[in-house]
């Protein structure tokens, strides 16, 4: 029992806590995934294996219009969000990295603020903005996409700027010394070096958009703007079928596949260390 007297010296006590924590954090989700494959209406009693809640004739993710539309709308928003936030964020990162002197500190703080603002504050602010000032846009898909871009933008900037810092100015300077025109310095030297960070930031923006709940809910209008997260919120406590677990599982597979792809791309070009820091969402 030496670890009781000196628990920090021998890690058995710590190992127990860590193992317990990992089980606690993973097993409930694995059970939720397992019940997506339940051959019955219960989400608590196992009735055999089936994929009926994914592809079955009635009430499945594929054939129930409410579920299918929610998944479609979630993906639509994610695509718009990535298409807008990535170029906007890459440009902001490049600009901020070289912008020295007056104003750069303020813009840097402004860029980081959405990362630490509780989502309900942003949700309320954007809701009132689209209700009272930009009534022309109004609530719905456009507002939801704009809201998601506003806070995914910061993640794109942080990831791309991290890569800019680790590349350093040497390559660009070398290209300039060798007489490359400025256009080529960017397109033939910087862009290829930045490419993995751009891919990774797009993937992170995609994953964050898919899993976003608060801002998306606040800016939604009618049933056609329901996303998977909103569906989970509104029906988790009702008496739904395992189809809810099934759609959550599909959502999870899409998110994790996107991130795995980004991690592999980033590790291939920028090394394991940097790739891990993106996966841990270090901001």
């Amino acid at each position: 029992m030496s670890w009781l007297r000196n628990p920090w010296g021998r890690p058995r006590f710590l190992m127990l806590i860590t193992g317990g924590y990992i089980l606690w954090s993973v097993v409930p989700v694995l059970l939720a995934i397992a019940f997506a494959f339940n051959n019955g209406r219960s989400r608590t009693t196992w009735q055999g294996f089936s994929t009926r809640w994914f592809t079955g004739e009635t009430g499945s993710v594929l054939h129930d219009s409410a579920l299918r539309d929610a998944l479609g709308h979630t993906l639509l928003l994610a695509v718009i969000c990535v298409a807008v936030a990535t170029p906007l964020g890459v440009a902001l990162a490049l600009g901020l990295q070289r912008w020295r002197g007056r104003g750069s500190g303020t813009v840097n703080t402004l860029m980081l603020l959405p990362l630490v603002t509780p989502e309900i504050v942003m949700g309320v602010a954007l809701l009132l903005l689209f209700l009272r000032l930009f009534g022309g846009i109004g609530l719905g898909t456009d507002a939801q996409a704009i809201g998601q871009v506003t806070f995914t933008l910061s993640y794109v900037v942080v990831i791309v700027r991290g890569r800019l810092v680790s590349i350093g100015p040497e390559y660009e300077e070398a290209a300039a010394d060798l007489g490359a025109p400025r256009r080529d310095q960017f397109s033939r030297v910087m862009l290829p070096l930045l490419a993995p960070a751009i891919v990774a930031s797009a993937a992170v923006a995609f994953a964050i958009s898919i899993d976003d709940f608060v801002v998306t809910q606040y800016l939604s209008s009618d049933a056609s703007t329901t996303t998977v997260s909103m569906l989970l919120y509104s029906s988790a406590r009702g008496a739904p079928t395992p189809a809810l677990n099934a759609i959550a599982t599909v959502n999870l597979v899409i998110t994790l596949a996107t991130l795995t792809f980004a991690y592999l791309v980033y590790r291939r070009f920028a090394g394991r260390e940097e790739a891990t820091s993106i996966a841990t969402l270090e901001v």
Binding site: P28, A32, L232, L256
Partner: peptide, 10 residues
Amino acid sequence: WINYLMRMLA
């Protein structure tokens, strides 16, 4: 990276 609401659903 697992949807917060899915973890609550679990």
